[in-house]
Amino acid sequence: MTTLYEEIRPEPHGGIPVRRVTITVNGEKRVAEVEPRLLLAHLLRQGFKLTGTHTGCDTTNCGACTVLVDGVPAKSCTMLAVQADGHEVMTVEGLASASELHPIQEGFKDEHGLQCGFCTPGMMLTAKALLDENPDPTEDEVRWALSGNLCRCTGYQNIVKSVLWAAAKMRPAAAADQDGS
């Protein structure tokens, strides 16, 4: 079990009781004792050592810290860890399987969807939620979906291409599943 309050606040924590939370992170059940004020981004990064989730602006603007909470994109810097209790969280570490990259990751590689890479985890998770809901998005729909994720390298052209690449790659598989073949 992770006890993060010891790391961030070694002194007694002002009489505020810590809370035990159980969160399914990338399919694995994790238990932690946290101060109520701890942000989800910090639990993931410092507590669970899942440093793929990046904190960029820390002010709810940039979307670099985006994770999926029950499949829905959320800015983990703008959510308390205690609010994730009982929920499923997916971070960028959950995208790839043991043997291969997720098609969205392949797309970012193939279409040069990253330069410095800082915004990439948030971009990819927002893209995953989009493609889960809409497997065949238009370019406009991709741009709209990603409009809460900022890239300071301004590499948006290739990011959009990467998501469209992934959509095309994932579609035959989805169609085959539906056919039962």
Partner: peptide
Amino acid sequence: IADPIVRNR
């Protein structure tokens, strides 16, 4: 309102 990720919550 805000951006798509903020609108989710």
